[in-house]
Design a protein around this nucleic acid. Structure first.
Lengths: 255, 255
DNA sequence: TTAGATTGTCCGGCCATACCGGAAAGTCTT
DNA sequence: AAGACTTTCCGGTATGGCCGGACAATCTAA
């Protein structure tokens, strides 16, 4: 049982989670969801409101735009985003609206999307069923990142997270993973054939300068319109080119 | 002196602020910035890390992408964004890269940007000098929102926030503001001529359905390339059209 | 490689304060 | 207008956040 040094903060984080699920909720709902007294829920909601992360409109609470603004500011100071945004957009244009492009970094041994341009008209508002923080071994950008990490780092991630299965196609064997990583280093890009989400294929290339692995850039699409060996294999080249561009941008800026 | 029911949460919020400013900071830096013991800063940083809002890479702490993901999820459940995103993008295309388009909502009696498409190649990474949460009376979208609120609401906002001056052009007289609001109701859109940022002009139209004021959509640009009375007055029409579109989308979806 | 300086992490006690029950005030329905 | 429902307030209690200090880990400089 992991414990939290400042449990009050953990509790507020739980409340944020509840608000995120419900979209908008009153004190009673929040208290009921977490099985805590209403007065406690109220204390936290008031505090979150005062610090600006929550708004209280019309007798019920909602997350404010503060999360978005803080998140965007933090992203704006992220090296990979600063030097990779434009190339990501360009790649998105190149592959078209049927495929999704993502700029990904690693956090806590999992994949964290930094930037994912949404095509115009893309559905919003529905619950995003896409797993938020997939493990590194379950998808293309994660594997691309792992392939360029040091052996110790790979070892550490493996012992810490293991190789949980996400879909029938997920790699769960350690040797198979190491072989795949070796292959990624040779070809320059990683492939995901329904390993994180069934029916989704993707390719990704890592962004590396010197010893530091900044992250990866990936293209995903439905398996139907995504031939890995056919003419769509050019997507692999596009992804590698984009990653190289970003690497160049980063190196060029470092001086 | 406003007080916080759960002061530990307020302290964590302060730490988040410090991390936001510094981009990346160690325990010592954080503790020094807030003038608190290192151990306390450490406790909070650990909990923030455990709950996923902070990452600890290479002996120093950074805000994680969690803020971004929570913020985007929250935005995705915001009615104005769901029904206004595409129209905002379309308007951005229509007015071109020299002008900025913003979808704005009201929070705590101030303006909160929900969505602001950045033109390709826009500078990122630099500190955004744009005031984050300007008061309603200081800019076009805020005035457009205010113009459609009930008299009591306007009164409440005025007594709570007053009419602080942001630039020499800011409206600081209550009667002048009321006259402006009346004019906005007549013409259908609000104008900002260097009232929030000197040298910036903008027009905005509110998005209203029935009694509820969802927010406003705005176009801003440098005063030089933004003729309010000349041929650029067509921007006013475009903004009103966009707002009407969004209103229609919302009403159409409500059933 | 070894000191020295600096930083991050851990620990344990004390008292501020987060928590909670309960009561009051507010809101919506019938 | 009264009931059922919320949200908000309040004050006592014991929990846990806060802090000083010790330890460990890392970096720097000879």
């Amino acid at each position: 049982m992991t414990t939290y040094p400042v449990s009050a903060v953990k509790r507020s984080a739980d409340i944020v989670e509840v608000l995120l699920e419900h979209g908008t909720a009153g004190v009673t709902t929040v208290a009921a969801s977490l099985d805590i007294p209403k007065s406690t829920a109220h204390d936290h909601l008031r505090t979150l409101e005062r610090v600006g992360y929550v708004v209280n409109e019309d007798r019920s609470y909602r997350l404010s735009t503060r999360f978005l603004h803080v998140g965007e500011s933090a992203r704006d100071s992220h090296e990979l985003f600063v030097h990779g945004r434009d190339d990501t957009l360009a790649l998105a244009d190149a592959v078209g609206d049927t495929k999704h492009v993502q700029l990904v970094t690693e956090e806590h041994g999992t994949c964290a999307s930094l930037f994912a341009p949404r095509p115009r008209g893309a559905q919003v508002g529905g619950a995003t069923s896409y797993p938020r923080r997939p493990h590194l071994h379950t998808n293309a950008p994660g594997k691309a990142i792992l392939a360029h990490e040091s052996d110790e780092t790979v070892e550490r991630v493996l012992t810490e997270h293991g190789l949980p299965r996400w879909t029938p196609n997920t790699i769960t064997d350690e040797d198979a993973l190491r072989a795949t990583l070796e292959q990624i280093r040779e070809t320059g890009y990683a492939v995901d054939d329904g390993e994180v989400v069934a029916g989704m294929r993707g390719v990704a290339a890592a962004v590396v300068t010197g010893e530091t692995v900044h992250g990866a850039i990936a293209v995903y699409g439905a398996s139907g319109g995504f031939e890995l060996d056919g003419h769509d294999s050019s997507v692999g080249e596009l992804v590698v080119d984009a990653a190289d561009e970003i690497q160049a941008n980063i190196i060029f800026a470092e001086e």
